[in-house]
Amino acid sequence: MICVNGIEISPPDDARVSLLDLLREHLHLTGTKKGCDQGACGACTVLLDGDRVLACLTLAAQAEGRDVRTIEGLSGESDDLHPLQRAFVEHDGLQCGYCTPGQICSAIAMAEELRRGDPSYVTHDLAAGPPVATRAEIRERMSGNLCRCGAHNGIVEAIEAMLAETAA
């Protein structure tokens, strides 16, 4: 079984079905978007056991026995927006909104990577402690999520706001 947003789902019979098509076409969870379907845009980013992955290049069968969380599952039982969803609204982190679910799932996992001290390509001293979440760090860490409307400045501001709120 695959646990999608807390609900147990049977894996598809056809091994070719991607996790993305399972979510969108079989479960009708259309929040996760199909952009390029070849790992170039990040629109299909979901959380697999808490780590951000691309649902388009993950076969659904590979998610068996694991926990999948999508944009629909971020707020849990309540109808409240996740703090990062609120920040995206406040900081104009979107225009058309197509990349937004992927951006938000990606940034939530990115915050955890920062918290545990994972370095990035722009981290100056790889051996030092947890990197500081500068704008350069956030931009590098979010480079796997493209926004064709060019809302990247608002996206970075929204993420900065969430990180500040979490740290407070």
Partner: peptide, 14 residues
């Protein structure tokens, strides 16, 4: 550094 230069965070997780 070479690993971190490759692909994106999502792809490096996979």
């Amino acid at each position: 550094r070479a690993l971190l230069a490759g692909a994106s965070a999502q792809i490096r997780n996979m």
